[in-house]
Design a protein around this nucleic acid. Structure first.
Length: 428
RNA sequence: UCCGGCGUAGCUCAGCUGGUAGAGCAGACGGCUGUUAACCGUCGGGUCGCAGGUUCGAGUCCUGCCGCCGGAGCCA
């Protein structure tokens, strides 16, 4: 059996292809069966007078998504999509498919999500998920090339995280356990062992958000580096995002073109990315007519206002302490703020990275935990990292689905994860 | 939780100031030797989201509920 992507190399040979019927067009005494095998599409031509009656009947009775093994000669044919076609000799139906629900036409979102297990087979979904897989591989390659050690962090955790109100809880042999919102606190523990580490896996947020940028389960890559400050942190973010875009352009160009992505906007993504401080951002927003004042968090509409002037991602750094997480390091030049950054994707895709230098002073960290009313006992081991050889360190989290939504130009993050978990959706 | 929008055939939708249900696609059958979401013909297919109310009469108007979508808050 051969794969459709290799058909050109088998021109003139008789081969077998296994796949699923994408489309059937019958014209009396000739029929066209388009088969998808997961690597591509091939048009099979069935001519009545060349086939046994049984084969002709089977071919013209095929329905959408029937699985088949087709055998025939590979021919170069300019009229065929892809330039090659199969002159059908033999056909074996492997599994029938009566009344396949998804048609080659527009469908509503709810219907498609109800049929996500089948929707995966369609071309746009295949293209988007292929880009996701490439970006995931690129993430591992990027960190591996730079000497980072991958440190897998737990998904089941005690009550530790950023915001207790948005944790999913479950029973753990009589104790409360929570699904991890972040692996960050754990990768911090990995730094003294390996200096530069990262984790990459699913994270869970029980936020009741119903927007195109939110999932309750999403994938995040979180590097953490010892002896790196906020400035070095932003430089690595810039390099990573640039690399991910380059890899997608290099290895997923057909997919991006199929999705109608404006590639010139991606090709323009080169460092350095523009940077403004939170305070400058507030001033700029005021000039653009926003009501947001110093001390407020920057919302979605404001992010779009800030990023509209450039096709490059934009860093906004050093936010007020009170709108950011407890573990971020106080800015020595302005103690009202912390050494952190958000990276806003262009074209309204919003925040794709949140990063910071971490508070390495035990007393300051303890004070922040108490200020926020967090359960001090749960952070005992985390505080140990400041008791035993504390060190300056920084890291960030990049949201995979938001990043891939931006790179592919898809509107909603739910299409860039195979089985999205949304506010009201746990199936399929 | 709040604000806005939408629920009619398997799917996508039309259905006017209330008068008793329609199209395309999908399915079944027939026709056609080069189609590209082929085309042409025939047929089957409905608790108009649910429950009340107004009315001689409700898919259409009113109330409540349910579901979905987008946004806010929160975040990646």
């Amino acid at each position: 059996m051969v794969e459709v992507r290799d058909l050109a190399r088998h021109t003139g040979e008789e081969v077998t292809v296994g796949g699923w019927v994408d489309q059937l067009r019958v014209h009396g005494k000739v029929a066209f069966v388009v088969v998808r095998d997961g690597t591509g599409y091939v048009q099979c031509v069935a001519v009545k007078q060349e086939l046994e009656e049984e084969t002709w009947e089977a071919a013209t009775g095929l329905t959408q998504e029937t699985s088949v093994m087709v055998r025939g000669e590979v021919r170069a044919e300019p009229r065929a999509p892809g330039g090659y076609e199969l002159q059908l000799r033999r056909l074996q139906v492997v599994g029938t498919s009566p009344e396949y629900p998804i048609q080659p036409k527009e469908h509503g979102v709810e219907f498609l999500l109800d049929h996500r297990h089948l929707w995966l087979r369609s071309s746009q979904q295949r293209a988007g998920l292929r880009v996701r897989a490439e970006v995931e591989q690129a993430i591992h390659d990027f960190f591996y090339q730079r000497g980072f050690v991958r440190l897998d962090t737990p998904i089941l955790t005690g009550s530790i995280g950023e915001h207790a109100g948005t944790l999913f809880s479950t029973d753990y042999f009589g104790q409360n356990a929570y699904l991890a919102q972040t692996g960050q606190l754990y990768v911090e523990a990995g730094c003294p062992a390996f200096r530069k580490v990262y984790c990459f896996g699913p994270t869970f947020r029980a936020e009741k958000s119903k927007t195109r940028r939110h999932l309750t389960e999403f994938w995040m890559v979180e590097p953490e580096m010892a002896f790196v400050d906020s400035e070095g942190n932003m430089r690595l973010q810039e390099e990573l995002v640039t690399y991910l875009v380059e890899r997608a352009l290099e290895r997923c160009r057909p997919e991006l073109e199929y999705l109608g992505r404006d590639l010139s906007k991606l090709e323009a993504v080169k460092p350095p990315f523009p940077r403004i401080s939170y305070t400058e951002a507030i001033e700029l927003l005021a000039r653009k007519g926003s009501e947001t004042r110093w001390g407020d968090d920057i919302g979605g509409a404001d992010e779009t206002l800030l990023s509209e002037d450039s096709h490059l991602p934009l860093f906004v750094y050093n936010y007020p302490k009170k709108v950011k997480a407890f573990y971020m390091k106080e800015n020595p030049d302005d103690p009202r703020t912390v050494l952190c950054d958000d990276l806003l994707a262009p074209e309204g895709y919003g925040e794709i990275i949140g990063g910071s230098q971490r508070e390495d002073d035990l007393d300051k960290l303890l004070a922040r935990i108490r200020e926020e009313g967090l359960p001090e006992e749960a952070y005992g081991w985390y505080l140990d990292l400041r008791r035993y050889g504390t060190f300056p360190h920084s890291g960030f989290g990049l949201g995979l689905e938001r990043t891939v939504a931006w790179i592919t130009g898809r509107k909603h993050v739910r299409e860039l994860i195979p089985f999205p978990r949304l506010l009201n959706r746990l199936y399929p």
